[in-house]
């Protein structure tokens, strides 16, 4: 057992858990986007940042990837944290302000509009789909290609992947509905540049069929 303090509240917990998990268990709210309970922490969205008190001053870390340690002093709602969350929220709004989930998320950290202008995209590159395909399904049919501002989620070479088993896990874990069932099953659709050649069929793992058969 270890003992740590989050927002002046003393908490006892087991070793090997992240600050985020401990906070959630104790009803302390930390906003997240790329975090998903079924997936390994990614530390990509930077919304879950918290501030640690250390002998060498304060330190900002992502709570989803940082393990809770004995004697740790954590603050989840300092001025620094609020500001960094707001910048992340403003950037998310600039890219995907048309997505209701993103607007709600931004509103939850007190942001309703953005000073930035970015090309619009429903996909916010949280990589939940990519990680689910790899970690849960074990197929790795999709990945993030390119780098920097050109990053996109695509199947290899932007053509339908032979590794895709049409399980639609990526659709389920996508927080912004950037991937739709049609992207995977309808060959006429090219959203996300996913062009599937497959006839609509059952998932090769669980035999679930999309059209309800």
């Amino acid at each position: 057992m270890i003992t740590l303090t989050i927002n002046d509240k003393t908490i006892h917990t087991q070793v090997g858990r992240s600050i985020l998990e401990v906070a959630r268990d104790n009803a302390i709210w930390i906003p997240t986007l790329c975090y998903h309970e079924a997936l390994k922490p990614y530390g990509g969205c930077r919304l879950c940042l918290v501030e640690l008190e250390t002998p060498r001053g304060s330190r900002v870390v992502s709570s989803c990837t940082f393990p809770a340690e004995d004697g740790m002093v954590v603050h989840t709602n300092t001025k620094t944290i609020q500001q960094s969350r707001q910048i992340v929220a403003q950037l998310l709004l600039a890219r995907a302000g048309h997505v209701p989930f993103i607007r709600e998320l931004a509103a939850s950290v007190g942001v309703n509009d953005t000073p930035y202008t970015l090309p619009q995209d429903t996909c916010v590159l949280c990589a939940r789909c990519v990680r689910a395909c790899q970690e849960i399904v074990g197929m790795s049919a999709i990945s993030i290609a390119n780098r920097g501002s050109d990053r996109v989620v695509v199947p290899p070479f932007k053509i339908s992947s032979a590794d895709c088993i049409e399980c639609t896990t990526c659709v389920l874990v996508c927080p912004t509905d950037a991937i739709t069932l049609d992207d995977i099953t309808d060959s006429s659709r090219t959203v996300h540049e996913w062009q599937s050649e497959y006839a609509r069929g059952a998932c090769r793992l669980c035999e679930y069929t999309l059209n309800g058969n």
């Binding site: 197929m139 790795s140 990945s143 290899p156």
Partner: peptide, 11 residues
């Protein structure tokens, strides 16, 4: 996985 090879090749 081919997706990973493609990721590396485009990165």
């Amino acid at each position: 996985p081919l997706s990973q090879v493609h990721s590396v090749a485009t990165f």
